[in-house]
Amino acid sequence: MAIEVRIPTILRTYTGGEKAVNADGANLHALIDALDASHPGIKGRLLEDNGDLRRFVNIYINDEDVRFIGSLDAELSDGDQVVILPAVAGGAR
């Protein structure tokens, strides 16, 4: 199983500068654990100490915000694309 994870600029220090890395996991929890195994420390930037997703971190599976599809329990399948982004005020007209 291969899931592409797109990494924001600020976290590329953990991925050796790579914009996107591949990782495995049946759900987002497992994927972040796998990500942290190959890129130690990245999990701490995404999750709070209590394991919740950090307030200003947005993660999308196939463009859908994971907070509306089970958060860290959101399921993943082969070929899914995961995007990690800092929260910004989008479309603030």
């Binding site: 600020i10 950090r54 200003f56 971190v57 800092p86 929260a87 910004v88 005020a89």
Partner: peptide, 13 residues
């Protein structure tokens, strides 16, 4: 646009 935005200093209206 996202630049080097610090993940701890994000913005939610």
């Amino acid at each position: 646009v996202y630049g080097l935005r610090n993940l701890d200093e994000g913005f939610v209206p």
